[in-house]
Write a protein that binds this DNA or RNA. Structure first.
Lengths: 215, 215
DNA sequence: GCTTGCATGGTACAGATGTACTATTTGTTT
DNA sequence: AAACAAATAGTACATCTGTACCATGCAAGC
């Protein structure tokens, strides 16, 4: 019954972003928008979950990159609620892998922070109406995901080590496997990422968000 | 004479950021702040320079990462004006090299976008008063920059190529130098960055913002 | 004039990497 | 049961990379 009402009343929106500047920006852009009712602006995933527990929310605008709990995990937690709101991802950068994972975890749309107010509103309305919303450039790449990396867990671990400058022998020692196996994995990684050596693999992986950039 | 007046009247502020969300956020956070007068909010360096040409501005809040003209170049252009305003950098991430270059180019402070309103205001006031403003973590690292990379132009070019998966031989061909020279440069790069091979060099360089992450 | 940093090119050699295969085991999926 | 993907380990061989040196030319700075 709730679902039907939302079509006729205001869309209840929750903003989740750790940047005060972004919270203020979204609040001032969307707070006075007719048809949208801003329920709150949380600075963390924890805060968001508490708020969702108390208030009914239709759409969550979620930042993907936050300290402590990252956006993907936050998304997972939100989707486990009894009446989960729809989630629209808001991110600063375009990392393919990240977007893909967010979609897998149940995100219904993806916005870059350089998006205009009108487009943000359009995305909110689209998602609330049960549609998805992805910018054209992203949508096309999500479509032809034959090109997807699809690295196995082992390959991911090895990619991580490799980018830190470890040799095959060292990686083998770290994981208790032979250096020949490590080399086979790396050859597979290079093929999957369509690069020609380990160095390019590391750099492509970082650019696509396959391996993290901070530590 | 202008300088003296600014101490007693409002601080005239210009925001430069390509993200509509961030512009709205900063405007709503700072627009009503007593003591600060928001002169404008530009979406690009070009727009900012036009605005600076027409209006008197004390402080520019400048995003470092923008399409077309990047923040460092924009900063250079601003500092070439007849009566250059003070510049406070606003950035999403903490890339040491980037911060260092911004300081070299004349920035008087550096803010992360996760900064609170009060701290942003404090930074504006500090810079307007002729002081510098850097978050503690950044200030300390700027201080002990014995650790700085200090790569030569040639080394930077080669680092860029290397991270794209080119072999020494290919890099040599691209620059018209011998592969032995390339290898010597790379050994120097590895020493300066304190890493043990080219792969780690590429990944460290990306993490520190020494080489770009977008293309 | 001397030193220092940068760019250049080289030799010799050990070890790392990548390619092309083969092959076994294990756990899923069909 | 058969097919498949993932992880494992190996051999053989060519090439690339990194280290340790040496050496030259040039420009900037003291």
């Amino acid at each position: 019954m709730d679902k039907k009402l939302t079509k006729t009343t205001q869309i209840r929106l929750l903003i989740v972003d750790d940047h005060p500047v972004v919270r203020a920006g979204l609040s001032s852009m969307l707070g006075k928008q007719p048809g949208i009712k801003l329920v709150g602006a949380a600075a963390s995933a924890q805060e968001a979950l508490e708020l969702l527990d108390r208030s009914a929310v239709d759409i969550v605008l979620l930042d993907l990159r936050m300290p402590k709990m990252n956006g993907i995990d936050a998304l997972g937690a939100i989707k486990k609620l009894k009446t989960p709101p729809q989630v629209l991802i808001l991110s600063s950068f375009e990392f393919e892998e990240e977007i893909y994972r967010a979609v897998q975890a149940g995100a219904r749309g993806y916005l870059l922070k350089e998006t205009s107010r009108d487009e943000i509103v359009a995305a909110i309305v689209a998602v609330h109406g049960g549609r998805q919303y992805f910018p054209p450039a992203i949508a096309s790449r999500l479509a032809d995901r034959t090109h997807r990396s699809n690295l196995s867990p082992r390959e991911l671990e090895i990619l991580e080590m490799l980018s830190r400058g470890f040799t095959n022998k060292e990686i083998g020692r770290a994981f208790g496997i032979s250096r020949y196996t490590v080399r086979n994995h790396i050859n597979n990684i290079n093929q999957k990422l369509e690069v020609c050596d380990r160095t390019e693999a590391a750099s492509v992986a970082m650019k696509q968000g396959i391996i993290s950039i901070s530590p």
